[in-house]
Design a protein around this nucleic acid. Structure first.
Lengths: 229, 229
DNA sequence: TCTATTCGCTACGAGTCGTAGCGTATCTGC
DNA sequence: GCAGATACGCTACGACTCGTAGCGAATAGA
């Protein structure tokens, strides 16, 4: 245990200016460490990743890691976050096509061993460490959530979805769609351990866009305050 | 690391007959250990639970733990599994009411500190250890999945859902619904970290039972191989 | 009584953690 | 150019956890 919990150094932030005086931190070391972390994750899994191992693998002293990241958790967040960078939602002409494409892309990302080893473990650690949870949210979760917002805007522009009624409702709707898509795909792949095939994606998208198949139509309608005829 | 990975002892299985000769294992010790594990999870989180700590807390020798469980992972699975035992789906008269009730119950379970500390960490470990994953599935996941099957049967009995077309399709449909409900609620609570309120449950259930609100009806229909008129 | 198994206890080597101290390297400001 | 500041690699450290081994005592069936 650390005798005192100090703040070793903020994580490497590309936008942060160099600290002024003294010898600057080696950018090459940053890259080597993050690469080594991803490689170790893929090869050894979460438990196999130790600070000492990553340091050796990156050709760097262990103290160099601790100067940049307070612990393994934060390091892994940064190492994994970049994998989510090239997630994007292309406008394919229909809401269904857009959803299916982004789900397929997300599933592909979750099939990588680095991602599998890291993601759930990070979420688990996040439930106990608010700062870590915030970091995870900023670097991994929120960018994904933005995809939903984007896809929604595209669908509205095409006339598939009506315009936002108000800010709050729109936000809640984005939230619920996001949790549903991300949570379901993660659960399917990482918990149930079954593959996400094109056929499955089609079924899942249908579930989002249509009522449950076989459902008597009238029963599905929620008791809304009677406004749309 | 263990020099050799042997098979110390199968986990305590109530249906297993006593081993015949020798001194029998103390059932009181089993209970004390599982209780201590849950308490330690709630109090210290996943990382705070060590075999030594649990042993001390249960008033038992560390070797006694290792005689029963090969590692912390399996121990925690057993300790947490019992929490899921009293999940059930009551027949409340409508599919919507049944879904909302079971989601609320599931959310309540996920709000317990023991569950939060254990569940995602176990899933994470399970992605690397097939035997552990199987144990998790048998003791925790499959019982939940059974709830979906039960709720579906109830809805069919009430005439809200049509009968199964065939075995395979029904199984896949149960799978997808299960991953959607479990995954979404887990993601909402443990990843997004936002509360599952009655209002949220209502919205989520609506998403399952109806198309996305505001969606132009015709666009939602999947291109089926033209069979139902 | 004999045999088998479990029990609590102690001790052990191996591994990881996060820190401290050292001498050296590199950059800025005077 | 030189002084101050900071990063670097290296080594060593105490504290902790892991999973196992060995011991004598307790508790069951044959």
């Amino acid at each position: 245990m650390a005798p005192t919990t100090r703040q070793p150094a903020a994580a490497p932030d590309p936008t942060a200016p160099p600290r002024g005086k003294g010898r600057p931190r080696s950018a090459a070391a940053d890259l080597a460490i993050l690469d080594a972390t991803r490689a170790a994750l893929a090869e050894l899994g979460w438990g196999g990743v130790t600070m000492g191992h990553v340091a050796t693998r990156a050709g760097v002293a262990k103290t160099t890691l601790y100067r940049r990241w307070p612990s393994k958790n934060e390091l892994v967040v940064d190492a994994v976050a970049s994998l989510f960078d090239d997630l994007e939602v292309a406008d394919l002409g229909s809401l269904r096509a857009d959803i299916e494409a982004v789900v397929a892309r997300f599933a592909e990302l979750l099939s990588r061993p680095e991602t599998q080893a890291a993601l759930l473990a990070l979420f688990a650690e996040g439930t106990r460490d608010p700062l870590l949870r915030r970091r995870i949210r900023e670097r991994i979760v929120d960018p994904q959530k933005h995809l939903v917002q984007q896809g929604r805007a595209n669908a509205q522009a095409r006339g598939e979805l009506g315009p936002d009624r108000d800010e709050l409702t729109a936000g809640e709707e984005i939230s619920i769609i996001f949790d549903t898509i991300a949570g379901t795909v993660e659960h399917r792949m990482l918990v149930s351990g079954e593959p996400v095939t094109p056929d499955w994606i089609h079924r899942f998208t249908t579930l989002l866009l249509s009522p449950l198949p076989g459902l008597s139509a009238a029963l599905a309608l929620p008791e809304l305050p009677a406004e749309s005829a």
